[in-house]
Amino acid sequence: MSKPLLIGAVAYTPNVVPIWEGFRDYFADGPVETDFVLFSNYGRQVDALLDGVVDIAWNTNLAWVRTVLQTDGKCRALAMRDNDLAFQTVFAARAGSGFADLSDLRGRRVALGSRDSAQAAILPVQYLREAGLGDDEVELVRLDSDLGKHGDTGRSELDAIRVLLDEDADAVALGANTWKALAADELMSDALEAFWTSPEYCHCNFTALETLDPDVYEPWVEHLLAMSWDDPELRPLMELEGLERKWVRPDLDGYASLFKAVEDQRIPARW
């Protein structure tokens, strides 16, 4: 291949630069030379994938759903982080609230993250509906602090927790990654408690169009999967990208709940 494989990623933190420069360096020694382009939001990135500007997009779960819907399924997920296989949403309340289940939120105010965040808005609304709560039975407080980035910054979830702690909401929905980042189970137990955790679902993946040559992407995926947590030079890169330990092949069944939520909530295909 004369031109390097081009990866698209969204610049949700300044640290994406060292992450993708690390990737570029790692692939420089591999079978497929790789470079990257950064986008300001996932909508623009998916457009670039569809237009052939980038070969592979590092997509959120919503960006994956969006790509599938816009290509009639003519795309493929190549790989994901190990913890993308088992992402979860946490519902939390102030300590001592006494909530035991989502149905306890009837007539309450629930703070959500950005409306384009699968983990902190789209799936939580679906979970509330599945718990038998109609849209008029729960008041949603939306904190759209990082629109376009599908909740990647975590900023909207932190804002939602502030609303909860200020007693302007009774509960909050957030990604398990943000809950973990707060070390809330250990360090905020006097202030917050998780009372419901969702089933596992899939989050990010590397997405390519069906037209990408297998002779190109297969060696690329193999080289990606070969990244070793035990390599002292690669480990900081993998930690920064948020892996638990390794890259894995995707599990598409883990997106079923989000496809249903997007359809039920009539989420625009171009978010």
């Binding site: 933190t13 900023r155 702690l165 707060l182 202030a191």
Partner: peptide, 20 residues
């Protein structure tokens, strides 16, 4: 605000900063 507020500030400010 209760004591948890400091952790929100830590996550937002440190998490959003450049590594190193």
């Amino acid at each position: 605000m209760v004591s948890g507020g400091i952790l929100l500030d830590l996550v937002e400010r440190v998490g959003g900063a450049v590594v190193g």
